Simulated scan of single mutants.
Amino acid sequence: MSGSGRWGDLTARLLSGLVLAAAGLGAVWAGGYYFVTFVSVVTGLIVWELTRMVRPGDATRAVLMGALAGVAGFLAIYFPAGFALPTLLVPAIVGYVWLPQVRRIYVPFVIFILLAAFGMMSVRSEFGFVWMLWLVLVVAGTDIAGYFAGRMIGGPKFWPAISPKKTWSGTVAGWIVAAVVGGAFMAVTGAGPWLLLLSAAASFASQMGDIAESAVKRQSGVKDSSSLIPGHGGLFDRFDGMLGAAILVLVVMHLTGYPPGAV
């Protein structure tokens, strides 16, 4: 059943996934300006995809909103703390005024995307390569485990009204793999058992990011956020989980001083 069936998209997913992973891990390794630039470009493209989904046919506004989001994300990490949040909110404010027909969907998602981007940049700049790598591996492990477990085991759907392909078997497999990643980092870094819980929580947040993006796609009547990545759809389709997990980590950072107990 080549090209069809439950594994029909596997080859394209693997090839494009490897290219995307290499680019992302290279940016994580490089850190600094390179990582900020990478995240800012991805942020801009995701907002471009979002605008195209909720306002199809309005290509000019999609490009302008994507560019504005990318610039806001880039500047915010370099601004003093008091200016970072207002800067991140600029694309949402502009969208509220410029896209009144879809503001109820657009505004919260733009805020979600920009805060997540800021969270990723903050983790890399404040806590270094190891803890950003932990976040990447938790999200990637969740996604990979969910993909294979969902197709091999199947079973009841997690939230069929919004994401008809996501199963409970894949969801739980994601939590387990995330906890395994957390255990590995416990051994390497000397972090406490809290990391197992945080890893599972980040996995769940990643899955909620996926669910949230699926809701937007269903509302917009599209299968993928775009066709930028063969076998994967768009960047929003690939980074929705990272956005959810990054929001959780951003909250944890400000509440407890992430990663708590690691040093």
Rank of each mutant, 00 (worst) to 15 (best):
40 S>M: 05
49 E>S: 06
67 A>I: 04
159 W>Q: 05
170 G>Q: 08
234 G>Q: 08
133 L>P: 01
73 G>P: 00
225 S>M: 15
184 A>S: 14
91 P>R: 03
191 A>V: 11
131 W>L: 10
40 S>D: 10
85 L>T: 01
246 A>S: 15
113 I>D: 06
211 I>N: 12
146 G>L: 13
196 L>N: 12
220 S>A: 15
21 A>H: 07
124 R>M: 06
217 K>P: 10
200 A>T: 11
16 S>W: 01
74 F>W: 13
253 M>F: 07
29 W>E: 06
197 L>Q: 01
263 V>F: 03
249 V>P: 02
45 L>V: 07
221 G>W: 09
227 S>N: 15
51 T>V: 03
255 L>R: 05
224 D>R: 13
43 T>W: 00
104 R>L: 15
59 A>E: 12
75 L>P: 02
147 Y>M: 09
202 A>T: 08
118 F>Y: 12
170 G>L: 11
151 R>C: 08
32 G>C: 06
9 D>I: 02
41 V>F: 07
121 M>Y: 04
193 P>G: 08
234 G>F: 04
39 V>R: 07
256 T>N: 01
34 Y>L: 14
121 M>F: 03
258 Y>H: 10
200 A>E: 06
166 K>L: 12
145 A>T: 09
183 G>D: 07
213 E>Q: 13
104 R>H: 10
125 S>D: 12
128 G>W: 07
196 L>K: 08
9 D>Q: 13
123 V>Y: 02
240 D>Y: 02
195 L>G: 14
85 L>W: 00
47 V>H: 06
155 G>C: 05
134 W>Q: 14
39 V>E: 01
241 G>K: 05
96 Y>S: 15
32 G>R: 09
87 T>R: 01
141 G>K: 04
45 L>I: 08
255 L>N: 06
11 T>R: 15
199 S>Q: 10
165 K>F: 05
171 T>L: 12
143 D>T: 11
67 A>D: 02
66 G>M: 13
120 M>I: 04
39 V>T: 11
7 W>Y: 14
131 W>I: 04
239 F>S: 13
88 L>R: 00
153 I>A: 07
197 L>I: 15
102 V>Q: 14
241 G>S: 14
59 A>S: 10
120 M>L: 15
196 L>T: 07
55 R>Q: 12
142 T>I: 02
17 G>R: 09
132 M>T: 09
250 L>E: 06
42 V>K: 08
170 G>E: 04
11 T>H: 09
180 V>M: 13
240 D>K: 05
212 A>S: 15
102 V>N: 08
201 A>N: 07
167 T>L: 11
122 S>F: 04
110 V>E: 02
187 A>F: 05
98 W>T: 10
223 K>D: 13
147 Y>V: 13
225 S>H: 11
170 G>D: 03
165 K>Q: 11
241 G>Y: 05
101 Q>I: 02
217 K>F: 09
106 Y>M: 14
134 W>V: 08
20 L>A: 14
230 P>Y: 01
180 V>Q: 10
115 L>P: 00
171 T>W: 03
248 L>S: 00
167 T>D: 08
102 V>T: 09
146 G>I: 05
29 W>R: 13
4 S>E: 13
